[in-house]
């Protein structure tokens, strides 16, 4: 899986689940795992932290 921002390789851990975040090790862009079916993974850009985020 390559980063849509900088094309670097992003490693997705085997136990990663839909909804989890992964970061590009090179440019730092955050992505959310949108779909995961075995080794087929779909990423989408993660939401940025909102004003109402937190507890």
């Amino acid at each position: 899986m390559n980063c849509s921002e900088c094309d670097a390789k992003i490693n997705i851990p085997d136990d990663a689940a839909v909804g989890e975040l992964v970061s590009c090790p090179e440019c730092g862009a955050d992505f959310e795992i949108a779909k995961k079916d075995g080794s087929n993974v779909e990423l989408k850009p993660a939401e940025s932290v909102g004003e109402d985020w937190g507890e």
Binding site: A17, V18, G19, E20, L21, E32, A46, E47
Partner: peptide, 11 residues
């Protein structure tokens, strides 16, 4: 129900 799957939700 989540919007970002954090360690807490996995726990």
């Amino acid at each position: 129900v989540f919007d970002r799957l954090r360690l807490e939700e996995k726990m």
